[in-house]
Design a binder for these strands. Structure first.
Lengths: 266, 266
DNA sequence: AAGTGGTCTAGACCACGTA
DNA sequence: ACGTGGTCTAGACCACTTC
């Protein structure tokens, strides 16, 4: 049986979805909820803290919590895996392999993917399709410990992440860097768009619970295929906006180079 | 004086930055920290929970927490305000006003900005500059209650958000939708890039603690000017990836339209 | 088996918002 | 002034990891 505070959070979440607590209305007080569910106030606080992190309610010290609505956040796994995401959205995902190679991390990888120089990795490049339409080109470097597992898999369908999870690898953390790039010749061809058109790029480093990096990836989406959403709040911010040419304190944006040029071969 | 758990979190964060707890090392146990700081274990748990949400440490039930490193997250205010962000990064922000008008929300706004039809708003469009270079075009709709305050301000420098905060308006929540678009003729001209080149678009709805929307905005950055970063974890996810043409369950991506076309007049 | 984090209790006092 | 959330205590038991 799951923890009591998770049950309470679920019940409250459902009640919000059902419209029992309409958007803009106030949640009952912690004391009242504690009495209603027969638990200590601390347990209720765990439940509402969870809803707050999910963006369902807000807090203002001294006043009751306000319902701000249900949010379309996804599980960590769905954010990590294109396949799992696609299935959860009712689409049929697939892939076409472009390149597959075990090698060591080079200088170019360090810059592009933040991967540590010299590490042995599996370099996998694929085109990803949604209901048969190419929407993304991805390049993923899998850490050495994952390489043999991935190499043994069918790579054109199903979720690599899901199968790695079943093999006992746990993904715990991910850092995402999101920006826009222009499609190069190769990408334009693969995605069926014009050269130079806008792509949404998501670069990601995923780590295990003990902090070991498992994957470095560079995904480039057709601009019309996806939108990434983030919700943040005063009490909770995992977002940052960075100058593209270095983390601040410098004048590096003072004279930007030409924009709209090709980003080269993917 | 700030809360004890915040002090403890700060001390631990500094200790990590100083290298006292190197990346990959284990944090002392909760019991030990409680003894060291002379507080109850619950207080220590509040502190480490904060560090966990910030992405500094991970958790694994039964094992000590692992240090995964310091992260460049920004305050909520810095994410909300271009000016405050720029200053914090060591740049000089400024703005040029393109359009300023009090009017009612139209159908086009609803689609573009998720604003409620018919609401009275201040429509402000500006070009934003970093150290004198145009890097972003923004369109912001300010809720009626903010309009008179904003109209009374100097709009070419300084932070509107900051001044509204000083006037007592509190920003508590923000929903961000991030994608890539191609520069239209007007945007290309304003930003000094080629027509059709990639822009990073960030659309945002900001709400007060009581859930009332204060601002709807559409910011379009030169692709070479900024990167947005997000950190998420298994226990904490505020991220979602959406099909651009509706929230899933549909076949709407099956036959995407032409990509790379102009997005029209900003 | 021992250590550690996860959950929960029952109570206390303080800071803030509302009226 | 009162209600409500924010913080903190001291102790308990369980689930999981590690040895």
């Amino acid at each position: 049986m799951s923890a009591r505070y998770l049950q309470i959070a679920s019940e409250l979440r459902l009640a919000v979805d059902r419209g029992e607590y309409p958007i803009g209305s106030l949640l009952p007080s912690e004391g009242e909820l504690a009495a209603r569910y027969g638990v200590a106030r601390g347990t209720v606080r765990q439940a509402v803290a969870l809803l707050e992190r999910e963006g369902v309610v807000t807090h203002r010290q001294g006043a009751r919590r306000t319902v701000v609505g249900a949010v379309p956040t996804q599980s960590f796994a769905e954010m990590q895996s294109f396949s799992m995401w696609a299935v959860s959205q009712g689409h049929v995902p697939s892939a076409r392999v472009l390149h597959k190679e075990v090698r060591r991390v080079t200088g170019a990888d360090v810059e592009r993917l933040n991967a540590p120089l010299g590490e042995e990795v599996l370099d996998l490049r694929r085109v990803r399709l949604l209901d048969g339409v190419a929407v993304m080109v991805e390049r993923t470097l899998y850490a050495g410990i994952l390489a043999e597992h991935v190499l043994a898999m069918e790579l054109t369908e199903g979720s690599i992440t899901e199968r790695l999870t079943e093999s006992g690898f746990v993904y715990a953390h991910a850092d995402h860097r999101i920006d826009a790039v222009s499609a190069g010749v190769v990408e334009a061809e693969l995605l069926g768009v014009r050269r130079g058109s806008a792509l949404l790029r998501q670069r990601r480093v995923t780590t295990s619970p003990s902090g070991v990096a498992l994957e470095w990836s560079d995904d480039r989406y057709r601009a019309d295929a996806v939108t990434i959403t983030v919700r943040n709040s005063m009490s909770e911010n995992t977002l940052a906006r960075l100058s593209a040419r270095g983390p601040g304190r410098a004048r590096q944006v003072a004279r930007p180079g030409p924009v709209g040029s090709s980003v080269g071969v993917f």
